[in-house]
Design a protein around this nucleic acid. Structure first.
Lengths: 200, 200
DNA sequence: AATAAGTAAATAAACATTTACTTATATTTG
DNA sequence: CAAATATAAGTAAATGTTTATTTACTTATT
């Protein structure tokens, strides 16, 4: 039996992400992808059932999987509030700012019904992504270090700004100077913690 | 000369937004839109040069225009930091939570290169959307009420969480209870202000 | 009567996916 | 231990459908 060519397998993923980042999800086509990867359209269908299957696996496994791994590097749910949030911010920023195509797909994942649905279902069947972060916040809540808000609300407050700052980071690669520096990130992160910390 | 049928003009916009909200930007087609609006495809081309023109005008004029107007209702750049931000948050939430299709297109506007580019160009040629907010933040900075961060950074910090909270609001219409209440919004808003207020 | 607004149907290109065939290798077989 | 075989991986080209946009015509109003 002829073995799989892993280079081609990787090329499909990498080039699909590149097309999505530069042209948008709405302009990714199977024939364009195959041509750019130097393979036959049929080869994509050996590895993925159809286009939706490709997009969902790209989003859930390739992108969110890689992001999760990067974000949790050196993170421990037992960390202090400030140390934990800062670690997550810096890990997340380092990953996203060096993986623009992955970031682009994550943004599509907040807009496209197909990907929104896939994410919801994944979180139901496989348990939540970022379980350690969930646990971390739950502990901080229990210890009375955080204003008592539902988990989804804390998640939005703590991490939505980071995504927008990464967007700004990429928009500024074209502009004269980079506004999103590590110092700015740390200031933002600190401000969020200060705002959400329970005053006792 | 036969006059324009304004109902059809409005139907194109409304139904396009509906399709984008339920099926995604990548599944909006001119023929599907025409059929759903009960008109001929040709009629769309009387009002818009091509599909990109339709999408950009829908995004910039219809959606962002309406959002801006709603957000600035009763807002005044001379308000206090807390009053101003709170006004914007409540205005924004009220509009977005009652205009799901508009919100859906705004989310696509953060992901789709076509719309990202259109937004950038619009901000350059027409001056920034939300000019009063820009002015408000500048004044608060000058008065030393805000931690000194670039405008784009403040914008991300102050308004990105609101968008994610609106997403949560819509996800919860399916779930047993609504987590995103006015009280939660006010707490979030207050936390952000507390974090970004300059301590003197 | 003039004319822009509108329609139904057509067009050519692009689309997701399949068909019919070829190739590379692991495993058997002589 | 090589040659033969089985078989999944792969290709090129085709399929039927859907796509954005246009053509040729009709309609409603000034």
């Amino acid at each position: 039996m002829r073995p799989k060519n892993l280079e081609k397998e990787q090329a499909i993923k990498t080039i699909a992400l590149d097309i999505i980042a530069t042209e948008g999800l709405e302009n990714l086509t199977m024939q364009k992808l195959a041509a750019a990867a130097g393979i036959s359209p049929r080869t994509i269908y050996i590895k993925y059932r159809d286009k939706d299957d490709l997009l969902i696996k790209l989003f859930i496994e390739e992108v969110l999987g890689g992001y999760e791994q990067a974000v949790l590097q050196g993170f421990d749910a037992a960390m202090s509030l400030e140390a934990g949030i800062t670690k997550i911010w810096l890990n997340g920023f380092r990953y996203l700012s060096t993986h623009q195509p992955a970031f682009a797909l994550i943004r599509h994942g907040q807009a496209s019904p197909l990907l929104v649905k896939a994410f919801q279902e994944h979180n139901i069947t496989e348990g939540s992504y970022f379980k350690p972060i969930h646990q971390f916040l739950q502990q901080q809540l229990a210890a009375g270090n955080l204003v008592p808000l539902p988990f989804e609300v804390l998640r939005a407050m703590l991490f939505a700004p980071l995504m927008d700052l990464v967007s700004e980071y990429f928009e500024h690669t074209v502009r004269p100077q980079q506004v999103i520096t590590e110092d700015v990130l740390l200031q933002c992160c600190h401000a969020l913690i200060k705002g959400l910390q329970r005053s006792r």
